[in-house]
Design a protein around this nucleic acid. Structure first.
Length: 560
DNA sequence: GCCGTTTTCGGCCCGACTGTTTTCAGTCG
């Protein structure tokens, strides 16, 4: 029995290392994934797993932890090690064993890089990554994998930060003596990838609050602390920042802690600087603060230092789109392709959300893996939707498809079929490796098809996984404007594509944008909040958003 | 290894295409 308590991160690292070693053997891949899942679960827990074990708690109550992993965790906590792990480690080659310190690296892929480039160490791996040789020889995705494995990355997706925020906030209020807590920083600005989860807190005893946070998830390393802020390394990787509310009144602290550096600089320039802020206070709210300096309230999502301060002074800030402005969904899959609910189930769910219409956009034939819909089956779906519209009250089902843009820029259904649809969503799903010029030409050619309406997930990026294909977005926007085509903000939390920056560009060019979920089940309609976040960051008003229009007006937009 | 459960073992997507491949792993939704 050891006395030193292990942090959740240290326990998770051992399980991840075991998964890593198992993956180099002919082991059941589902077993490997089980260990990885359990490790990930432990990293997000606010309770100390070490304490849970010593208190004889039932770990199998947590999702992803069953009898075997539960006893492995007990062994780790009580002996400080894991026999199975040590055994595999002693049998592994030096190259593989040395990867244990990098639990995010996939040994099989690393070994491929080693072989290809004739190297055998992490140091060499780093060098070849920095020199661009890995990307050159093995592609962008491999380079991305290695980069995330060897560099200390703190980034997490916004939707993961949402879960984490709830847990940390509850901990601060219930266990760390905070009287008032609010999330601030890039999280509150709804930035799609978060490196630092920040809170403004009001407390009578800040040092005690820091001490309590150091016990979060067993042990959370304190990176820096002053009498007004503290920075921690959460076991899930992301940084946790806590700022003590020092200004009289809550409003000024929220302004200071929410805006980006660029926003705060522009704000200071427009209002006489931070000294003037303190002198003019206290402010109970941010509205009071902005109002005092003759500025309209600036929504957190806009506080990036674009032109929001000038606009707030002129009174020309857009009234940002909100969830209640959304009248329908324009990108949704069903059991006809790779969705898990039928057309009727999706329609019922859309109606329950108060939507007026839902477009059914199943995949086209080329996308085999998603069971793309044959021409015959699309005809059947068209007739089925006609029947459904005769029967269903309170929701209109739109006939559509997510049509593949083929490598040569042609669309994956013939015009005679496309003509029968109310509109189309057209997307690139193949040949991501084309060069920027070719990829751009491919999309421009597709937009010349008279049935092209909405460009689906314009860059194909998967946040923290894949950079997306390269396109000249300005040329594509220009073409869309000429040809009466539109964009979507795909709300899938790991796409968010268009990005806020690209959506801002499209909007400035006067091209309307759909906020779509790409839902593959009724549950996924809920992800629209992430698309709304990015639309608001792009400064979109409801008049800029395609699916804020009633169907009659939308139908006019779709005429070409 | 976990889960759910028609409570004892099967499912946990998956299948065609791509590439600079040296005979198959990675990739796309």
């Amino acid at each position: 029995m050891t006395d030193a308590a292990l942090s959740n991160a240290e326990i998770a690292d051992r399980l991840a290392a075991l998964a890593q070693l198992l993956s180099t053997q002919k082991e059941n891949p589902y077993k490997i994934r089980a260990y990885q899942r359990a490790a990930a679960k432990i990293r997000t827990m606010s309770e100390s797993v070490d304490e849970l074990v010593r208190d004889d708690a039932d770990l199998t109550a947590y999702g992803g932890i069953g009898a075997a992993i539960s006893s492995a965790i007990r062994e780790i906590v009580l002996t400080g090690t894991l026999g199975k792990l040590e055994k595999l480690r002693s049998q592994a080659s030096a190259e593989v064993a040395s990867l244990s310190k990098y639990p995010r690296l996939d040994p099989k892929r690393v070994l491929r890089v080693y072989k290809k480039l004739g190297i055998a160490s992490i140091e060499a791996l780093r060098e070849r990554l920095d020199s661009g040789e890995i990307e050159g020889a093995l592609g962008a995705r491999m380079a991305q994998h290695v980069r995330q494995g060897v560099t200390e990355s703190h980034a997490i997706l916004l939707y993961r930060a949402d879960e984490l925020r709830e847990a940390v906030e509850e901990f601060l209020l219930a266990k760390a003596g905070a009287r008032r807590v609010e999330a601030v920083g890039e999280y509150r600005r709804r930035v799609e990838v978060i490196e630092e989860l920040a809170f403004l807190v009001e407390t009578a005893d800040f040092p005690a609050l820091i001490a309590r946070l150091e016990r979060y998830g067993g042990r959370t390393p304190l990176l820096e602390a002053t009498d007004r802020h503290a920075l921690f390394a959460l076991s899930s990787g992301v940084r946790l920042r806590v700022d003590r509310a020092t200004d009289p009144g809550w409003g000024l602290g929220m302004v200071r802690c929410t805006g980006s550096a660029r926003h705060l600089k522009k704000l200071a320039a427009a209002t006489g600087g931070a000294r003037a802020w303190t002198a003019a206070g206290p402010f109970d709210s941010e509205e009071a603060f902005y109002g005092h300096f003759g500025l309209a309230y600036i929504a957190p999502e806009l506080r990036e230092g674009h032109d929001e301060v000038e606009r707030a002074a002129q009174g020309t800030l857009a009234v940002l789109v909100t969830g209640s402005d959304i009248r329908g969904e324009l990108h949704a899959h069903t059991t006809s392709s790779d969705g898990s609910h039928t057309v009727e189930q999706m329609a019922e769910a859309a109606r329950a959300l108060g939507y007026e219409y839902i477009g059914i956009t199943d995949h086209s034939p080329s996308l085999k893996i998603a069971r793309g819909v044959s021409v015959d089956d699309l005809w059947k779906q068209i007739r089925q939707i006609d029947q459904l519209n005769g029967r269903l009250k309170g929701i209109r089902v739109l006939k559509s498809a997510e049509v593949d843009i083929l490598a040569d820029g042609s669309l994956d259904y013939r015009d005679e079929v496309l003509r029968e649809l109310d509109y189309t969503v057209c997307s690139v799903h193949s040949r991501f490796g084309l060069g920027k010029a070719e990829q751009t030409e491919r999309i421009l050619r597709a937009m010349d098809n008279r049935y092209f309406r909405i460009l689906g997930h314009a860059t194909g990026r998967l946040l923290l996984k894949r950079p997306g294909y390269e396109i000249d977005i300005e040329r594509v926007i220009e073409k869309a404007k000429q040809n009466g085509c539109f964009f979507e903000i795909n709300s899938s939390p790991d796409r968010l594509d268009l990005s806020a920056d690209n959506a801002r560009l499209a909007n400035q060019a006067g091209v309307k944008i759909a906020i779509s979920t790409d839902a593959h089940s009724t549950r996924e309609f809920g992800t629209i909040r992430y698309g709304l976040d990015q639309a608001r960051r792009a400064g979109l008003a409801k008049t800029d958003v395609l699916n804020c229009l009633p169907w009659t007006e939308l139908a006019r937009c779709f005429k070409r």
